[in-house]
Amino acid sequence: MGGKRKTNENEGMEGEEDSKHNIKKMKKEKSEILPSSIKNKEKRSAVHAKLKHQKKLDKRKKLKARDATAKRALELGEEPPPKQIPRTIENTREADETVCMPDDEELFAGNDADEFSAVLKQDRTPKILITTCRFNSTRGPAFITELLSVIPNSHYYKRGTYDLKKIVEYANNKEFTSIIVVHTNRREPDALLIIGLPDGPTAHFKLSSLVLRKDIKNHGNPTSHEPELVLNNFTTRLGHRIGRLHTVLFYSNIRVLALHTPCALDNTVKYVPSLSNLIFSLVRLFGLRVSDFVVDLYIFESKEIKQSESKGKKAKDTKGESISKEKVIARLQECGPRFTLKLVSLQHGTFDTRGGEFEWVHKPEMDTSRRRFFL
């Protein structure tokens, strides 16, 4: 009888422990419920805000612990722990055989004889013709007006019923160096066609995420200064060619052009902008698979900084005197437009849909990975 009572007591204690364990497990599962699984909007928002706040606190705590460990190691004369390299799309991009190397002599020789060399060597002055497709939209003219204010020495011509081949012939006779055709669909600009003259190439871009100047909060207005062009990550053969195609649109005799590539190619055009121009346009083109076109202004502001200084030796009665000094601070102000370009095709020569030879064409089966870039 005593043994049976002991076994019953043990079974009861084990049952209580199991029930406590189950309660803890249920509480843990409740705390790990995803906000997306909650149907009530208010509860879902509250849970999401709580999780976000907790994640922020944990991150801050982790950073403080890491800084304290590094500081302790420096005080003890030991080596601090190695800095962690963040995982980004750029440093995890898939390897590409067409990436330009600094010692690529074939690429250097090709730059001196390609279609853009005449403009980049200043043998020809850039002159851009901007037109539209045959069916223009209500937002197209506003976009073209902002392009005219950004691209130097650009001129707008109404398309009318003229064929594009006739426009290319006319532009060659008038010594234009490039043609930009703004294509619209459903009253919205959706594509850009850039044609290099007189021998091409022709690049077709898909245009998306267009934001005009009036829609940008606290936007600036473009000035009459020559633009500075900054190209980042145009590392492949195709990207290098597309970068030069954009370069001939903005290139000027004042040499305020800055071309930045990770490869640091020796014979690519690289100039340091003149600091005498206090305010001038900045055109940024980041070229991976998608190019983001942003127009910014360099603004130099002078701000007063107060510094406290005391005369003579320090004493109880001496008071510090504040001296104000001016310090020049540079910042960027976006003036628009802002849009995204995605390369669809690159064609040899000028525009020809029937007999044209394509250098590169984008196909849907190419988009197998987000870490694969073509430019």
Rank of each mutant, 00 (worst) to 15 (best):
M13A: 13
Y156N: 05
D367A: 15
A315T: 13
T145Q: 15
K24Y: 08
T202V: 04
F135T: 13
L120C: 05
S117A: 11
D292V: 09
D296F: 14
F286P: 00
T125V: 14
A258Q: 10
L193Y: 07
E32Y: 07
L107R: 03
K363H: 15
S37K: 11
K39R: 09
K158W: 00
K327T: 07
S308D: 07
I130C: 06
L249Y: 03
E17C: 06
I180F: 02
S274C: 09
R66V: 15
G200I: 01
S274E: 06
R244Q: 09
L257K: 07
F373I: 08
N172W: 00
K206Y: 10
P222G: 12
K214C: 04
C100N: 02
G243S: 08
M1A: 05
K56N: 11
A113Y: 02
V295D: 09
Y251D: 03
K314R: 06
A73H: 10
S302A: 07
M101D: 00
R124E: 11
F250I: 01
V182L: 12
L231D: 01
E106S: 00
G243T: 02
P262T: 02
G287R: 04
A113Q: 04
G320E: 09
L107K: 01
L34S: 14
N267G: 00
S36T: 07
A65I: 13
E78R: 14
N91I: 10
G243A: 12
S37E: 12
I194T: 02
L346A: 06
P364V: 14
N185M: 09
R354E: 12
G243R: 02
T261N: 04
D296E: 15
H246I: 05
K319S: 07
A113E: 06
G196M: 01
V182G: 05
G239S: 04
R87W: 11
N221M: 15
S308M: 03
S149W: 12
E11Q: 11
K50S: 12
G15F: 05
T235G: 03
S154P: 04
I89W: 11
L120I: 08
L238V: 05
E29I: 12
L346S: 04
F135I: 12
K311P: 00
K62S: 15
D112C: 03
I89K: 14
L278C: 04
D292Q: 11
K4W: 00
N221S: 15
D352C: 05
L229M: 03
Y251K: 04
F300V: 14
H48D: 06
P189L: 10
L207T: 10
T138W: 05
N185D: 11
R60E: 15
R331V: 08
A118C: 02
S322L: 06
L192A: 05
S252R: 08
I144A: 05
H219T: 14
A70T: 14
L120Y: 00
I254V: 14
Q54D: 14
E17A: 13
N91E: 12
H48W: 01
G110C: 01
D190N: 15
T340W: 02
Q84N: 15
T202E: 04
T131H: 07
E105W: 01
P126I: 08
K27D: 11
E90R: 12
T184E: 13
A171R: 01
H246N: 09
K52P: 00
S45N: 08
D104A: 01
R60Q: 15
P222V: 13
